[in-house]
């Protein structure tokens, strides 16, 4: 009797079809959307990407980081540094910033991995604070009050404002698509299986020959790479950077965590749903200012206490759906069994 491992299920095939259709519509957005729509969509893409990466780190590798804003800010500052000091085109500067940030992540990992669990979380926060304080010491990039992208560089991206808008929109879409696709492929691979094993039972994973530490460090570095690129792209669109904005705990960690928790940790669909819910709440309630933030905090607490697996987790439990085919199912081949 032969055995195959299969990923797709009926719901995932339906989901894949819907995704493909949706993706085409989004690529064509410059045709049907105005400037505001494109900017809103770009923001949504950025958050989906950030949340998916955080989800990979915390939900799959078990590394709960409260300091990913370190890489958002680092990526953004590297982009501005490359543009202003190196004259490098922002388009190339994005992946370059990602690569340099990944390099920085290596010694950072060496330090913070000495801490475990909750302490690891706060350690990552301190690293982000160090980055922020160092950034405000760099006078060339505006010190504490920050700086803007020079006009010459802006023109260099594309001749007209509309062309720039379209280009930056497609970059944002390309980045999030690449990141989500990468995560799906990673999880379907051997590494994905290793991550799931580590998540479920680290000791047992070790006993099965998985190099747990190396896997975790790799995930940390890869996440830093992606996060930095998103950070670069976000601030490229904003055209202006400052330490407090680039390394904001609220914007790049609190909201991201909120999105992932509400949507569902440890599942790919979670961050996407969470982002949608987050933006719905924001569009309707943001005028309330501090009250809005308090409500976000309250919702996060309630979800954590009542539905720790998030919205998508509930859906999976009740209905067994999956959009991204990740669940491995073993299929026994009946025909060859009968032939034996």
């Amino acid at each position: 009797m032969s055995v195959r491992v299969v990923f797709a299920s009926r719901s995932s095939r339906v989901g894949a079809a819907l995704c493909a259709a949706g993706f085409v519509a989004l690529v064509a957005a410059p045709m049907w959307g105005g400037r505001d729509d494109l900017q809103l969509l770009s923001e949504i893409y950025a958050y989906v990407a950030l949340a998916s990466l955080w989800n990979l780190l915390a939900g799959y590798a078990g590394l709960v980081s409260v300091g990913q804003e370190a890489y958002v800010g680092l990526g953004a500052y590297l982009l501005f540094a490359f543009a202003i000091l190196g004259g490098i085109s922002p388009l190339w500067a994005i992946p370059l910033a990602g690569a340099v940030a990944a390099g920085v992540a290596i010694p950072v990992a060496a330090l913070v991995f000495r801490l475990r669990g909750h302490y690891f979380a706060i350690g990552t926060w301190i690293v982000a604070e160090v980055f922020r304080l160092l950034a405000s010491q760099v006078a060339v990039l505006g010190g504490g009050s920050g700086t803007s992208l020079p006009a010459a560089m802006i023109i260099g991206i594309a001749p007209s404002r509309q062309a720039r808008d379209f280009l930056e929109y497609w970059i944002a879409l390309a980045l999030v698509a690449a990141i989500v696709a990468f995560i799906v492929l990673l999880l379907r691979s051997r590494y994905g299986l290793a991550l799931k094993a580590i998540r479920d039972n680290e000791l047992a994973a070790r006993c099965n020959g998985i190099d747990v530490t190396r896997t975790k460090v790799l995930v940390y570095i890869v996440t830093a790479f992606g996060t930095a690129m998103i950070g670069a792209q976000i601030f490229l669109q904003k055209l202006r950077i400052s330490p407090d904005a680039a390394f904001s705990v609220n914007d790049w960690t609190a909201f991201v965590i909120f999105i992932t928790v509400i949507g569902g940790i440890g599942r790919i669909e979670g961050p996407i749903i969470g982002t949608v819910v987050f933006f719905l709440l924001r569009q309707t309630l943001a005028d309330l200012g501090t009250l809005y933030l308090m409500m976000l905090g309250l919702v996060a607490i309630l979800v954590m206490l009542a539905a720790p697996k998030g919205i998508w987790g509930l859906i999976v439990e009740r209905l067994g759906w999956q959009v991204f085919p990740l669940e491995r199912r073993v299929v026994f081949d009946e025909r060859s069994a009968a032939a034996e």
């Binding site: 409260v66 609190a254 965590i257 928790v261 933030l293 308090m294 976000l296 905090g297 309250l298 996060a300 607490i301 954590m304 206490l305």
Partner: peptide, 8 residues
């Protein structure tokens, strides 16, 4: 996460 929410 709960204490984070509490902090906010």
């Amino acid at each position: 996460l709960v204490t984070f929410g509490l902090s906010v």
